[in-house]
Design a binder for these strands. Structure first.
Lengths: 222, 222
DNA sequence: ATTAATTGTTAGTCTTGTCTAAAAATTGCT
DNA sequence: AGCAATTTTTAGACAAGACTAACAATTAAT
């Protein structure tokens, strides 16, 4: 099945809005998310229902069918893989990628996206820490909190804790400006000793694996 | 200025159809190329004229303005860079890339395309041998005929001649199935000795630089 | 140079996705 | 339960880009 960009965007919005809740998505909420008017949303809901992508009862909101969910996951897969590509291969900053990925996610070619996945070495999370569905739509649980040593190049997050309480450890952190709440971008992992180069407060620092594996990072919600 | 995909496709078609000739492009020819009806083409011509992308007089055909030509060249640049990307980074066959590139060429992001250009190391020609405009719209003369040793990985063409008449040379060619009219894809250039691996008739062969620099290749017209 | 064939344009319709204005259903309040 | 506020849907319109059918301009041929 092929869908228009507009249909895909609505599906994506419904997916995002129904995440968590079991309740349907209201027309007004959807319209607000899509930056359109409720009447436009109603029109689209009728069309999506016709195509069996959503369940929809007048005045009762909508929710994705299994087919609709599959479509949403494939769009998400494309969006997030392109984000990884932009950050890792084209050195975009993680904050610049969304807009371009919004366009790229509509490119229709299964082969393209699967080859891109391979080129990027089958990443499990995008630069914002969001999980990437695999070709069959499965994805890992939402990444909440990881060790700095587990980040991939280009990913970023906020320091939310440590797993070592020694004085020496805190001294190291202090002397390198690493503190709670600081935003960290992992720039490079050196295979040789698994040490990492990170960027924080606009300064670059190299961190040994021993240290990186004691720092807890909260990856940012999309 | 931003243009719709449809406008961009018409501009591209007008550019292609006016290549060579100084005469205007006729409405029927354009419609045929766009797989639409002449009436649709007329409608679009009015719109493009309104936007100063073409000159157009009723019943007299159209031609690109300088501004229109610039737009065409930027689309061409995007199309061809994406083709190089698909072939070199994602291992697409050169015959599969056109359709996907037709979609990718409409992605709007100057930064994206310039970074892609850098990632690909500023290629001058696409996998079909067509020249790639640079960021300012300039491009080299159409590639007509080059030495096998001058091809880049992923490029292909047809053997059209040799620059050595010795028996030993012909013996080598014969024993490696290299003959006039054969389609050759250059797969890899080995920096060590500038030897190349080529694919012809579904077989891979390694060729020394000495040999490759004596074989004339006609790159294929899009 | 007049007519026939071809080419190109206009007029009116259709679809997609949007809008506004008005009407209907639902929810909430007392 | 009944009325008001809110939410949602309907109706009708519009722009983009396409189509068909009909008409107009150009070209070619005798």
């Amino acid at each position: 099945m092929n869908f228009t960009q507009s249909e895909e965007n609505y599906i994506k919005a419904i997916f995002a809005l129904s995440d968590g809740t079991d309740l349907g998505v209201s027309t007004n909420l959807l319209a607000e998310r899509m930056l359109t008017k409720p009447s436009s949303a109603t029109d689209m809901l009728k069309k999506l229902k016709e195509k069996n992508l959503i369940e929809y009862k007048k005045y009762k909101g909508c929710s994705l069918t299994n087919e609709g969910r599959d479509v949403a996951l494939q769009i998400l897969r494309k969006h997030r893989l392109w984000e990884v590509f932009l950050v890792q291969k084209l050195n975009f900053g993680w904050e610049e990628v969304h807009e371009v990925a919004e366009q790229l996610e509509h490119i229709r070619s299964k082969k393209l996206i699967d080859k891109l996945d391979a080129l990027l070495d089958y990443p499990k999370f995008d630069p914002h820490g969001e999980p990437i569905p695999d070709a069959s739509g499965k994805m890992e649980a939402h990444k909440k909190c990881v060790l700095l040593s587990e980040l991939n190049a280009g990913e970023h997050g906020v320091v939310v804790g440590v797993e070592d309480g020694s004085t020496d450890f805190f001294t190291f952190l202090k002397h390198n400006n690493i503190e709670l709440g600081v935003d960290v971008i992992l720039q490079e992992v050196f295979n040789y000793d698994k040490s990492v180069r990170i960027l924080l407060k606009n300064k670059e620092v190299n961190i040994s694996h021993a240290i990186a594996s004691k720092i807890l990072i909260q990856t940012i919600e999309s």
